[in-house]
Nucleic acid binder design. Structure first.
Lengths: 130, 130
DNA sequence: TCATATAATAACCTTTTGGTTATGAAACCA
DNA sequence: TGGTTTCATAACCAAAAGGTTATTATATGA
């Protein structure tokens, strides 16, 4: 059995985090929680969706470690846990050099060279060279 | 009908991007493409998976605008498009202040105050005060 | 003690996802 | 020309996702 405070290892955690972020309702919930903890009712209010649906979304976020919950009378206040967001951001940051454009130029250059080489071959063919 | 060079608008694009990133196979494909364009066969090689499965993954990445494809004889070389990664990273960056810890302290403080207030009430109750 | 508020769970349904095999199409090459 | 390579598409399947309504559990508070 999984230990109580179970949190998934690196790749599974990224799976869960990115999957959680793929839903607009859940992203909106995270945005709301960024301005402070909130109860399930409070979180559900802006959405045209049943309470169980919101509870399901919260469970997804909780299993990804992005939300933790406390106790306040009948309420189960949710709070944002930022660590998974940070890890996701770190993962994306690895591609920074890419969108900074340093690679695009190299790619373009390689493509051009390839195209020229091919053009030469075709030219050779047309001239009857083997 | 959607125009030819269709790319989804802001929220749908984030949906597609994060959903694409949620699969480890697709993340591995992106990592491979970060070191340069590759054909479908080349991309499929490391995986214990059929070629159509890889083609499906590529279509997901393509629909998210994260991969574009060229033509080289029978091959359809894939290249990484970094823009969606950049947008995803930008979205995450909004939560930076959170993992930097500036909010956690406030949250903790608020919780502590609430707990103390509650403790006082209970104490009052035990002493028989209404 | 009992009605109420908050939230979770169960059971169900539909759509999407991630995989398979089989087949088809396009371009190369001998 | 005709076989080979590369890739896409179709048809199918099981499991997961995202929603619903109905029900249950827990704690409050009068």
């Amino acid at each position: 059995m999984k230990p109580k405070g179970y949190l998934p290892a690196e790749p599974e955690r990224l799976d869960a985090t990115f999957a959680a972020l793929a839903d607009p309702t859940r992203r909106a919930i995270l945005a709301r929680l960024a301005s402070g903890p909130a109860s399930v009712m409070e979180l559900a209010e802006p959405f045209a969706m049943s309470q169980p649906a919101i509870s399901k979304h919260l469970k997804v976020l909780e299993r990804a470690g992005m939300v933790s919950r406390g106790r306040d009378a009948q309420r189960r206040p949710c709070r944002l846990e930022a660590r998974p967001l940070e890890l996701a951001r770190d993962w994306l940051e690895e591609y920074r050099q890419f969108w900074e454009g340093r690679f695009k130029k190299l790619d373009a250059l390689l493509d051009e060279m390839k195209a020229q080489a091919k053009a030469k071959v075709s030219q050779g063919r047309r001239r009857g060279k083997p």
